[in-house]
Amino acid sequence: MVNGYKPATLQEAIAIRSREKVIPYAGGTDVMVRRPEGVPFLFLNDIDELKQIKDDGEYIRIGAAVTFTEGLKSDLVPAVMKEAVSRIAAPAIRNAGTFGGNLGNGSDKADSVMAGFALDGRVRLVSVSGERILPLGEFCIRRGVTAIRDDELIAEILLPKKNCDLPYYYKKIGGRNALAISRVAIGGVYSVKDGVIEQFTAAFIGGGNVCKRFEEIEATIIGKTVDEVKANAEEYVNAYAESMTFTRGRVSAEYRKTVIMNLLKDFIQTING
């Protein structure tokens, strides 16, 4: 038997969340596989406030309970996010799985979260005591651990509009073409004005125990000319590789490192402008 609460509003949901231990449930595709016995679910999948995709002028706001399929159908969701989401699992799982769930379960291999990093995204958390907006880099701590408090729920993913229409790079390497967890993935956006790089992000899966960006390296790229960056691609790639930790899992550390470095080089070489 599955026991739980099915609140109609976000207010009700955070009230329940604040008073007892529950497992937030949005799509259930992951949590149903390994839920602990005896803890009730808090079903969020019918809360209208969490099912919206909106443009507030500054951010594209994707509600936590928006499914991947809904995201793929939306005109507001940026292309790099759609490409990442289109490679998640298979249609049946994309019909149920959600943006909030992908972030909340703390996976270091969450494809939509990586795309969110590439777009310099934030997460809006709500609780009875108010709300917090955190950059994804502060929210994702390490595999299985996030900055969410026991009384909070993920309300929205916020994607800065200024990044949403930029040219992007995205590549996922899984064990097969569908229903595959990323072994390595890389995504990023950039902008170039008069031959100078104005914006550059690169986010990674497979370069450590959490999905991440390396803003200090990005800062060394921003402001340089495209030609300079391409000419020194090797240096930048090495700087990235040194900042990452490659571990053995389903594939070897050597494999992850080789592929990340190859793809990063490819990303840099494809920068237009």
Binding site: A90, G175, R176, N177, A178, L179, A180, I181, R250
Partner: peptide, 11 residues
């Protein structure tokens, strides 16, 4: 089935 992969029709 996370660690033992068989091909899908997409492959």
């Amino acid at each position: 089935f996370t660690d033992y992969l068989v091909p899908t029709s997409m492959d």
